[in-house]
Simulated assay, not measured.
Amino acid sequence: MQPQLQHLDPFNVAGLTARTTNRDESDPEAARIGTLWDRFFGERVYETTPHRIDDMRLYGVYSAYETDAHGAFDITTGVAVADGPATVRIEGGDYLVFTGQGEMPQMVLAVWQAIWHYFDAHPEIRRRYQSDFEAYSGPDQVAIHIGVLTD
Rank of each mutant, 00 (worst) to 15 (best):
L8S: 14
N12Y: 15
N12I: 01
V13F: 12
L16Q: 01
L16C: 01
L16A: 03
T17M: 09
R19S: 12
R19Q: 11
N22D: 04
D24C: 07
E25S: 06
E25P: 01
E25W: 06
D27F: 08
P28Y: 04
E29L: 14
E29V: 10
R32F: 02
I33M: 12
G34W: 03
T35L: 14
R39E: 13
R39V: 00
F40W: 09
F41K: 01
E43Y: 07
E43K: 11
Y46N: 11
E47H: 13
T48C: 08
T48Y: 08
T49H: 09
H51G: 00
I53L: 11
M56V: 08
M56D: 15
R57N: 15
L58H: 14
V61T: 06
Y62G: 06
S63T: 12
S63N: 05
A64L: 06
A64G: 09
A64Y: 02
Y65C: 09
E66M: 13
E66S: 13
T67F: 10
A69C: 01
A69P: 00
A69E: 11
H70W: 10
A72V: 07
A72P: 02
A72G: 13
T76H: 05
T77R: 00
T77A: 13
G78L: 05
V79F: 03
V79H: 07
V79S: 11
V81N: 14
V81A: 10
P85I: 12
V88H: 04
I90D: 04
E91W: 04
G92L: 12
G93C: 08
L96R: 04
F98Y: 08
T99V: 05
P105G: 07
Q106S: 13
M107N: 12
V108W: 08
L109F: 06
A110H: 06
I115H: 03
W116F: 07
H117Y: 00
D120T: 12
A121Y: 03
H122V: 02
H122L: 01
I125R: 14
R126K: 14
R128M: 06
Q130L: 15
D132H: 01
G138F: 04
P139N: 05
D140V: 10
Q141G: 01
Q141C: 03
A143H: 02
I144Y: 00
I144R: 02
I146A: 06
G147H: 05
